[in-house]
Write a protein that binds this DNA or RNA. Structure first.
Lengths: 224, 224
DNA sequence: AAGGAACCGTACCGTACGTTACGGTTCTCT
DNA sequence: AGAGAACCGTAACGTACGGTACGGTTCCTT
């Protein structure tokens, strides 16, 4: 923590989170791959070996081990930007579809090996208070999905499809209905198996429950 | 992992999880205290210093570092056995009270510094696959509350107050409604403040939502 | 009181790993 | 082609920490 660890890619000025070069991205992918393997040998030497680069280069690019891990977390976060929900005309059916997509997408994310490894890493570091990995993961996970879903909820309310006072509270209910015990079980090593089918089913169930709680004129239209 | 690490307290035979002696319990409490401090110096030397005992004794009693941590987790688990819910006659009101108590108790547990530290530790170890701390924590957390709450749900169903097919699914919904994003945020270091008042309010809200989803003839009896 | 077990405090050992240093190679620029 | 930067592979260094050894002290047993 003494030396550089500031500018990640000097050749692309102006970007603060610092877009990594292709080679740097390959290194970060190596880190991601490495931390998903159970043996968990996440050492600088292992990263250098896996990425076929020298340790000197790692330190030159990322400053220290913490910088490398932070860059890795941000790198992964930067490509989860998928799934924009363009505002279409909202009726009961499209709202339900949107919610289902959100829930299914979220379940897919939190059950992916990458997310599990990343969250474990960030949680470990949150214990030692040595970095802000936890904040980064939160910002790109729980809070990011909140910021993307809340406009949908408010549009649903504006369209008379949903009824709630506190958007945040409504979102947290949806979050709980969708996620339930999945994330904590996976983080603790329970081998919960979540296939596409289960995710789709659970996302639909959570959405139906949410609409039961917050839907307005909408009710059970014998969906399934 | 080469030497002892089997019988924790030879002077109390017959107990498999091995009730620790008073002195040993003091050591385990030192570990618990140590892992709640942010600096997180959870080394054998630090434990010995904190507990005013020698490292040699630690190794004699617990075998190795992993044995010490496992004993600590089990020690903490052994005293969360509080909150037995004696089956009283179940009416709508007492069921609602029971559910609120469960939710409030669970929120208190997961927001306590001890639980946070313990879960962080277990999650870190789940990454390295080096022990079964994760399983122990799951067994005494998520699954323990499930086993205690499910009978209540089934009594509620038997009494005609609740309607559901799958007890496990109903419990998981309750779990999600109560916990929502609380645990993951706390584990990742978000400084979410949960006082008694918030817990009581959130537990009541979760219970009301659960009863809306699963209650039978029961509805909003203008409780508050 | 004598013997011994248990235990404390400290010193010591070996290893793992973060970090730095360096020689040799490849790539870039002019 | 030649100079210099960037980088790879490997070696070396220092420290932190898990685990062990040992002398001295307390306490229990007989």
């Amino acid at each position: 923590m003494t030396s550089a660890a500031k500018t990640l890619a000097p050749e692309t000025p102006g970007l603060d989170p610092a877009e990594p070069t292709a080679r740097q991205a390959a290194v970060l992918d190596a880190v991601l791959a490495l931390m998903q393997e159970e043996g968990g040998q996440l050492t600088m030497a292992a990263v250098a070996r896996r990425a076929s680069c020298s340790k000197e280069t790692l330190y030159k690019w990322f400053g220290d081990r913490d910088g490398l891990l932070t860059a890795t977390v941000q790198w992964q976060a930067s490509r989860v930007r998928a799934g924009r929900y363009d505002r279409q005309r909202l009726d009961a059916s499209s709202l339900r579809d949107s919610l289902r997509d959100f829930a299914a997408n979220w379940l897919s994310v939190i059950s992916s090996p990458t997310s599990i490894a990343l969250n474990r890493l960030a949680i470990s570091h949150a214990a030692s208070k040595q970095s802000n990995l936890g904040q980064i993961v939160l910002e790109n996970g729980r809070f990011a999905i909140g910021n993307r879903l809340k406009p949908v909820l408010e549009e649903g309310r504006a369209a008379g499809l949903l009824a709630f006072d506190d958007t945040e509270a409504a979102f947290r209910t949806f979050f709980g209905l969708a996620g339930r015990d999945v994330q904590i079980r996976l983080l603790l090593g329970d081998d919960l198996k979540l296939g596409k089918a289960e995710i789709a089913r659970d996302a639909a169930a959570a959405t139906d429950q949410f609409l039961t709680l917050y839907g307005r004129t909408d009710q059970k239209p014998a969906a399934a």
